[in-house]
Amino acid sequence: MDERRLRFEAQALPHLDAALNLARWLTRSRADADDIVQDAMLRAYRAFDSVRGNEVKPWLLAIVRNCCFTWAKGARRRGHVALGEEVANDDAAFRSAEPDPEAAAIGADEGGKLVRLVEALPEEFRMALILREWEDMSYRQIAEVTGVPIGTVMSRLARARALLKTAWIDRVEGGTRHGVR
């Protein structure tokens, strides 16, 4: 058996779920996430000799992130909504993507609402949040995946959480539903 593939199966394949979860949240599309992850795994496999064992996960997710960006550029050219477009104007984009107040008032599925809010977060904020809350990654690891300083990771996380808190928790607590606390 090929040495590199054994190592890849043991060290990279265990992170396939993490790769898919990140791509799915970034693209908001299962089909696109599947395509991206398959492409990313193949790229990772080709470049696998260059990575040390304990750094495989951040390295792999960085590749997934890059593939998502490439996908977004292609989608923009094809005239679809791209994942990076809200970054420049985050708050406005976030608000515009919220469910309308009437739907919220009739209490549309609570979980679905939160998912849509996360999906509406500016993409860099969303990525930091996914890596922290879903993958339990440290600030240093998130910085590695996203290629920014740790201070930037911290402020993105803070912004993502503040946006979610304002849009979701405050509304739930202010409304007729019993609180989440």
Binding site: L13, N21, Q38, G111, L114, V118, L164
Partner: peptide, 23 residues
């Protein structure tokens, strides 16, 4: 509260058998 809400409501998407096979 935010973390608790995410844990309760937001899914962890996992690779399915079709993706595993194609990889």
């Amino acid at each position: 509260s935010t973390r608790a809400a995410l844990r309760e409501h937001a899914p962890y998407y996992r690779a399915d058998a079709a993706l595993r096979s194609s990889v």
